[in-house]
């Protein structure tokens, strides 16, 4: 089966800065692909290329074995690539239902009397959120009254409803507490069970490991390799992400501090 989305040797330069250098990986249907990397590893550049904000400088994106070029985020969305941004996905002061259909409101009626199809909107919102395991008491309640995990859920449910085949999640768990993060991880597993390809971007190894099928490690704009989850251990991943040496240096530094503290006392 051809991968849903595939990156081949993708690079992105901003002037003299090489933000991404020859990154390749592929995501299949029903697969969770984790992109792990520390700050500055090139994760955000990669998301922007995948979601159609930037075009790659070199290399190509292929959808089901056909090369594509996204003209805009909307274009990527129309190709079934939906990106859920960490905090830019929903409008807190608007109702759950208004948020769910923002930008794609179903209408009924004719000419100047064209109006939003509120019964459909409210029914679909309630149903789709229920699919994700969240009981929306009132589709008219502001999104601001939802918890962080529920907001992510809304964004994901919306993407799935509007026919996303590939779901890109940008650090969906980083701002959340332990319980809420677990809710989002469960959503990721549910999306996979529905046959979506999920690209899960995070810097938290402990969130990546429970749900990942494959892992690609990024460091300073380069891919350190793609691994099946069972091929690699957590500790090794942490080490590679931090660049190995940094941690060794840190331990030496801490040891030195401890010694100095001892002599001060």
């Amino acid at each position: 089966m051809a991968p849903l989305i595939e990156l081949r040797d993708v690079s992105k330069h901003f002037g003299t800065v090489i933000a991404l250098n020859g990154v390749s990986f592929a995501v299949r249907a029903g697969e969770v692909h984790c992109l792990l990397g520390d700050n500055g590893a090139g994760k955000s550049t990669l998301i922007k290329i995948l979601s159609g904000v930037h075009a790659p400088t070199t290399g190509e994106i292929r959808l089901q074995d056909r090369p594509v070029q996204f003209a805009s985020p909307r274009d990527a969305l129309d190709h079934g690539i939906a990106t859920v941004y960490q905090d830019l996905a929903t409008v807190p002061l608007m109702s759950v239902a208004r948020n769910f259909f923002a930008g794609r409101e179903p209408v009924v009626g004719w000419g100047p009397f064209k109006r939003m199809d509120w019964p459909l909107i409210e029914r679909v919102t309630r149903e789709e959120m229920a699919h994700m395991g969240i009981d929306v008491r009132d589709p008219g309640q502001p999104v601001g009254t939802l918890s962080g995990g529920e907001r992510q859920c809304l964004a994901i449910a919306r993407a799935v409803y509007f026919g996303a085949k590939v779901l890109i999640l940008d650090e969906p768990t980083s701002a959340l507490g332990v319980h809420q993060a677990a809710v989002v991880l469960r959503l990721i597993v549910q999306a996979r069970a529905r046959g979506l390809g999920v690209i899960f971007i995070t810097h938290n190894v402990h969130h990546a490991f429970p749900v990942a099928d494959t892992i690609t490690l990024l460091n300073r704009g380069r891919s350190l390799g793609t691994f099946a989850k069972d091929e690699i251990r957590r500790e090794r991943v942490v080490e590679m992400m931090a660049g190995g040496r940094d941690l060794v240096d840190l331990e030496a530094e801490l040891a030195a501090l401890r010694r100095n503290g001892a002599t001060l006392q």
Partner: peptide, 28 residues
């Protein structure tokens, strides 16, 4: 009032004013 409560353009007004970035991301 009709525009705000019943039309697609009304929903866009709320989205754009609530968070222009989010609006752009969902294709408004």
């Amino acid at each position: 009032t009709w525009i705000l409560l019943q039309t697609r353009f009304g929903n866009w007004i709320f989205t754009v004013g609530g968070d222009a970035n989010a609006a752009r991301n969902v294709g408004v």
